[in-house]
Each structure stands twice: as C-alpha cells, then as structure tokens.
Amino acid sequence: MNRIAENFFDLEVMAKYLPSILDGVLVTIQLAILIVLSGLALGFVLAVVRAFQIRAVNWLIVLVVDAFRALPPIVIMIVFYFALPFVGISMSGFVVAWLSLTLVLASFAEEIFWTGILSVDRGQWEAARSTGLGFLQTLRDVVLPQAVRLTIPPLTNRTIVITKSTAIASVVAVPEILTQASAAQAFSANTTPLMMAAVAYLVIFLPLVVLSRWVESRFGWKR
C-alpha cells in the first residue's frame, strides 16, 4: 500500500509538478479547440463540395479522405514532423499536431456529413426543386437540416476520439499534458506525474463522454 502511495500519489511530487501539468492542460485544450473548429468546418465544406457531384473533384476528395481515415494519426504526425523538412516544409510541433488531427477529423466528418446528406430521401430533393428552390437552397434549407441531425451522435463520438489523440502530440514535442507528465516522471523517477496526467484527461474528457451518451439518446439513430 505504502509503495503505491509513494510511487503513484506522492504529494511532494504532485505539488512540485502541478504548475507544469496545468500548463500542459492549457496547451491540450487550445489544441483540441482549434482542431474541433477547423476539422469540423473543413469536413463540412468538403461534404458540401462533394454534393455538387463533379467527378474529378469527388475522386480527389474520396482519395484524401480515405487516406486520412486509414492512416494512424501517430504515423501522420511523424511523417509531417520528421519527413517533410527534408523537402523544405518545416512546421513546429504544434502546427504539425493541429494540421494532422484537423485533416483526420475533417476526413471522418466529411464522410459522416456525406452519409447524412445521402440518407435524406430523394423525394425531399424532388419536392424542393419542384417548388422552384435552387440546388444550393435545397441543400441549405431542406437537406442539410435533416442530414445534420442524423450526424450529431457519430460526429460527437468521433470528435471525442480525435481530440483525445492530442496526447500523441507528445511525440512531436508539443508541451501538452502527456509531454509535461513524461518529463516530470523522468526528472522525479516517480509515476505520480503520470497519474496527474491521467486525472487531467479524465477531468477534461469524462464530461464529454457522458455528454455523448446523452446526445446519443437524444438524437440517436432511430433503429
């Protein structure tokens, strides 16, 4: 018991590294918010562009979206951070983490929005067009409102999974929670900082997971 207390809940270590972990929390939250905003926006735009059904454009979107859905985020970040500088593209760790996860979230979001758009009955398009609404008006006023509702639960879950992946930014030296905790762990030769990181993640993400359960029951697919 003593051993657990000493190695996992050492109060002195806690007090000493609390400020740096809190710095990490701020970085994680900043990164997460930026990713959610840019990722969802980009995903939405891509889905709307795809609705125009221009063959070449759609092929390109599908190709990129598929790739970012298939690749592990850690592989994307490592390629961006360690390989791109060789061809003259250098980005800071923060930008790499933001860009990688934005592209991943945008890809999943595009696919979800697009599936939502497809799920709206053809009759809705025809009814709207028959009353003289244009393509974009139909999309904006008739199709998207119905599609978005369907997409909320899967989108919430996916967003949580991807914002959790900000922990991976630790491999490209972004000073977020896990980076700070790992450094503190190395300095103190004690697991307490990792436990603090664990608690920090729980404090941030548990409310979101509980929220997602509520969202699921509120907007859930009618099976």
């Binding site: 959790k164 896990l178 697991t191 990792l194």
Partner: peptide, 15 residues
C-alpha cells in the same frame, strides 16, 4: 466503459 473512453490510449499505454 466511460472511464476508458475518456482516456487517451497512449496515456493508458504509458501508464
């Protein structure tokens, strides 16, 4: 379930 869904897998792995 909710506990581990709130936990980044990388953090869990390192822990």
């Amino acid at each position: 379930v909710d506990f581990f869904r709130s936990f980044p897998p990388l953090v869990l792995l390192i822990l």
